[in-house]
Computed example of a mutant assay.
Amino acid sequence: MRDAKSSATSRRNLLLGTAAAGALFAAGCTSNENNDSDGNSKPAANTADDKPGKEVTIGFAGPQADHGWLNAINEQAKRRAKEYQDVTLESTEGSNDTAQQIGQIETLINKKVDVLVILPADGKALTQVGLKAMRAGIPVVNLDRVFASAQAYRCWIGGDNYGMGLNAGHYIGERLKGKKNAKVIELAGIDNLELTRQRTAGFDAALKNYPNIEKVGRQAAEFTVESGQSKMAQLLQAHSHFDALWNHDDDQGVGAERAIKQAGRDDFLMVGGAGAKRAMDTIKADNTVLKATVLYPPTMAASAIDLARALGQGKGVGGLAELEIPASLTLYSAVVTKDNVDEYLPTGFS
């Protein structure tokens, strides 16, 4: 599954919503030059846009599609590349095996691609191959799971795991703020992953703002349907009453919802995580305990292709005054509810 930077680093990164990020890459309206006398600014000469430009070959080394979110990452990257007439995508077979992925990336380096987009199976273990690419003059866009050295990539783009927990906690807190002695439970992901610890830390931090709420239970699952069902069943058995559940991942949420249905429970609200289309459809129907999901948008892969194209063409990002693309972009973890689900449904993944 996904890995992440420390929450402190995330706080320093530029925060962008997915819609805003798309607008930045597509627009070409920000100027680095003085305004004309009529008050209109000139488009920056180095701004990336949709018009065909210099041909760019992008090497993409993504994950094995053994999870809905990971499959969406691969699909988003391939779909975005096809939208550009000037982009050729050299894509490897997805792999979660570190040695195999290193070999795949070395093959792309030997092919002398113009730019690399890499979602590493293990950021620390693949740092050296990222450094190798950068030393060979091939800029690297590091996607989500971060390398151990900033020298191994030109730009990092990814999600905000701490922000996911924070926003889930605030949503639940606002829903329960008028309730005395409210109780919440948490169905986490894999505890030995930093991303899971960050999501829990953000959730706990948000709940501190609501003294009427107590977290009374937590189980760590494994981002699978089966684990979601078994761990949720344990939580339900241990807690005869609670008011809200935060589940870190919509895929394991399928199992959690099965356990909830089997137990005949509907006395609490549930918040999911990641932004699966199935979850959004359920939220829109508004006929189960699932009332919201907090995004960890796989659209970051499409934005990574935008960044790689801009790097290959020596251009900046539309909508920003800087001549160069930023070194780091953290996407915002929006909360999707029945009130805004139609806006986010197109980003939902299967």
Rank of each mutant, 00 (worst) to 15 (best):
A304P: 01
S95H: 06
A220F: 15
Q229W: 02
F203V: 07
A205C: 14
Q100E: 11
P297E: 04
L329I: 15
E324Y: 07
G17I: 03
V141R: 02
D339R: 00
K124A: 13
M232K: 09
S95L: 08
D281F: 08
S95M: 06
A23Y: 09
I283G: 00
A168L: 05
R175A: 11
L236M: 11
R135N: 14
C155V: 15
T47N: 12
L89E: 02
Q76A: 14
G319A: 07
M232I: 13
T196W: 14
Y171G: 02
Y171S: 03
K5P: 09
G318R: 02
L195D: 15
S230E: 12
Y296S: 09
A20R: 13
S333P: 03
D266T: 11
D122I: 06
D38M: 03
Y84E: 01
A81N: 01
K277W: 08
D267H: 08
D160A: 14
D86W: 01
L16Y: 14
A81V: 02
A188G: 15
S227D: 03
P52V: 08
L119W: 05
L311T: 00
G275C: 03
D144E: 09
A274C: 14
S227F: 10
E186W: 13
G123N: 01
V140W: 07
M164S: 14
Q101H: 05
S328R: 08
A220D: 13
A45L: 13
L131G: 04
K208L: 15
G165E: 01
E257C: 11
L345N: 00
Q76M: 12
K180Y: 11
G217K: 04
L143F: 12
A81Y: 05
N35Y: 14
D144M: 04
G272C: 07
I213R: 04
G130Y: 08
S328T: 10
A99R: 10
I73S: 00
K124G: 02
Q128C: 04
H248I: 04
N192D: 13
L176C: 02
D267K: 10
F349G: 03
A168M: 04
S31Y: 03
I58H: 08
A279L: 13
I305A: 10
E257V: 05
L116T: 00
I118T: 07
D144V: 06
L14P: 04
G59N: 01
G228H: 02
G103I: 09
A206N: 01
I118V: 13
S149C: 06
E222H: 13
F60N: 00
E257I: 09
G169Q: 02
G94A: 06
S240Q: 14
D267I: 11
S303T: 13
A20Y: 12
D339G: 06
A4D: 08
G53Q: 10
L329D: 01
L290I: 07
L16Q: 06
E90F: 06
D86T: 08
P298K: 05
L295K: 01
P52R: 10
E106K: 14
S91G: 07
V129K: 00
L16R: 04
R218I: 12
I185L: 14
S333Q: 10
Y210V: 05
Y162Q: 03
K132F: 06
L195H: 15
K231S: 07
N46I: 05
M1E: 09
L307V: 13
A256C: 06
A65K: 12
N110F: 11
S350G: 14
G39D: 02
Q219D: 11
